[in-house]
Computed example of a mutant assay.
Amino acid sequence: CHFEVLVSFIFILVGFSDYPDFQILLFLIFLTIYVITVLGNLGMIAIIIMDTKLHTPMYFFLKHLSFVDFCYSTVVAPKLLENLLAEDRSISIKGCISQFSIGVICVVTEAVMLAVMAYDRFVAICYPLLYTVSMSPKLCILLVSITYSWGIISSIIFTYSLLVLSFCETKIINNFVCEYSVILSASCSDKHFSEMIRFIFANLNALFTLIIILTSYFLIFVTIFKMNSSSGRYKAFSTCASHLTAVSIFYGTILFLYCIPSSQNSWLLVKVGSVLYLVVIPMLNPLIYSLRNNVVKEAIRKLMYLKIISP
């Protein structure tokens, strides 16, 4: 009965309607970003599948990271683009919570995937002779399965904590996406349980993945600094550069959003941070890995060459 009442409510996504003169410009910018995101991530997946040189654990994880980024962007961007042109910016609470729950799967999966990739780099640099044995195909599949599973479990927990809330009337959401805090703020019931769930699981996910990443890179740097050869140190650093850049951007944006004070004047910063977090990062990851990784660049050049000479 509660769910039947719940689906009858709607939210109004304000988005960027405060800037009517820039709606068309913003639409073109976000459309360009979305097209680059789709082409970049699907292109990365295709390159990894077609080039046998990229059939290694590192690129196996990268393939799934690209898939998650593609899904994440596709969950958010179409509704953002629609709201920039449409006068009716309403979304049902069912649609809003659905967008949020799929988004949680993608965000948590990406965070854990980055941690798994850090562990992969740790094994590759600290134990190179055992790398093939340690990162076996079965282990890689298991790690990816755990990553997706934890993303789904986290989404179920967060979504349940929202479904138990009551919503009394149409609510205006001062954002372009159905994010947890704005859905929570629209509730007219006791939010203690939901706030507790958010605090525990959001911090648990962030702390768990950061511990794995920071520990892995601490051991990686210790191993690199012990190397006698400067060329060896450079090669080891270069294998981590793309992943370290992606991690820095991902967690840097999260910390930026956490540091924004909760006040009415901070909504613009929240929107800017959300754009970076939800729209820009999925576009940047394939660019980072394709521009900073010589193996990927070589694969791209080879595929382009084959396409040019093919009848």
Rank of each mutant, 00 (worst) to 15 (best):
L130C: 00
S101A: 08
V182I: 14
A202V: 00
A111C: 04
C126K: 15
N174D: 09
Q99V: 00
L80R: 07
S187L: 00
F100R: 01
V164W: 08
F158I: 10
L142M: 07
I105G: 04
I183S: 03
I91S: 06
I157N: 09
E179K: 15
V177D: 02
V112D: 15
S90E: 01
E87R: 08
Y72V: 02
A115R: 07
I141P: 11
I102H: 04
I183M: 14
F67I: 03
Y148L: 12
V177G: 05
S194M: 05
F193V: 02
C188H: 10
V112A: 15
S90A: 14
C96V: 02
E110A: 03
D69T: 08
S166P: 11
I183A: 11
A111L: 02
G151F: 05
M135R: 14
R198Y: 05
V123K: 06
I173V: 01
K94R: 13
I91P: 08
V68L: 11
V75A: 03
V108L: 12
C168Q: 13
C71K: 01
V182T: 14
L162M: 13
L81R: 02
S155V: 08
E82Q: 02
F158H: 10
H192G: 08
A77L: 09
S155A: 00
S145A: 05
F158T: 03
S73I: 07
C168P: 00
F100T: 01
Y127V: 02
C140S: 06
I97T: 14
S154A: 09
N203E: 07
N83R: 15
F100K: 00
A124M: 14
I172V: 10
M117C: 09
T170A: 14
I105L: 12
F167S: 11
L184I: 01
I153G: 03
I183D: 13
I153N: 13
L204S: 00
K191L: 07
I152H: 15
M135H: 13
F70S: 06
K79T: 13
S154F: 11
M113I: 11
C140F: 09
S73F: 01
S166V: 11
A115F: 09
G95N: 08
I156Y: 09
T74D: 06
Y180S: 01
E195W: 13
L85C: 15
L81D: 04
L139Q: 06
R198N: 12
Y119S: 10
C106M: 03
F122S: 07
P128S: 01
P78T: 00
E169S: 15
L142N: 09
Y119R: 05
F201C: 09
V108F: 15
V182K: 14
M196C: 05
Y127D: 12
V182W: 13
H192C: 05
F100L: 03
E110G: 03
K191V: 10
S149W: 14
